[in-house]
């Protein structure tokens, strides 16, 4: 049974609104030069969905829900590990003097 109290809902909406505004403000200042690594970084951050998958896995009790949660964990882990690694690889290439 999921039961969100109205206080939770209001708090969550407020967090969402403030985080979005903060995100918009911060991202506006990211140099165009870095838009590709920015995208791979935010993509890696959104793999925090793995937290949700772990939570659901903890109480999953049917083959269906366990399978769904397991596939979700695998997908999110792909992005979490791959996302940070590729962002690092891209960022390493940006050097001011162009030398190795």
């Amino acid at each position: 049974m999921i039961e969100s109290t109205s206080a939770d809902i209001i708090t969550n909406i407020m967090i969402f609104a403030l985080a979005s505004l903060l995100g918009l403000e911060l991202i506006k200042h990211v140099s165009r030069l870095l838009h590709t690594p920015l995208m791979s970084l935010t993509n890696a951050i959104s793999s925090v969905a793995i937290v949700a998958a772990l939570i659901v896995m903890s109480y999953a009790n049917t083959t269906l829900t366990i399978t769904l949660a397991a596939v979700a964990i695998a997908c999110a882990a792909t992005n979490a590990i791959g996302g940070f690694m590729i962002t690092e690889r891209i960022l390493k290439m940006f050097r001011k003097d162009g030398k190795k």
């Binding site: 969550n12 903060l22 959104s46 969905a49 937290v51």
Partner: peptide, 15 residues
């Protein structure tokens, strides 16, 4: 009702 997911998702969404 997980606030970390809301924050991370909102940042990714706005980006």
């Amino acid at each position: 009702n997980n606030k970390l997911l809301i924050v991370a998702g909102a940042i990714d969404g706005s980006s």
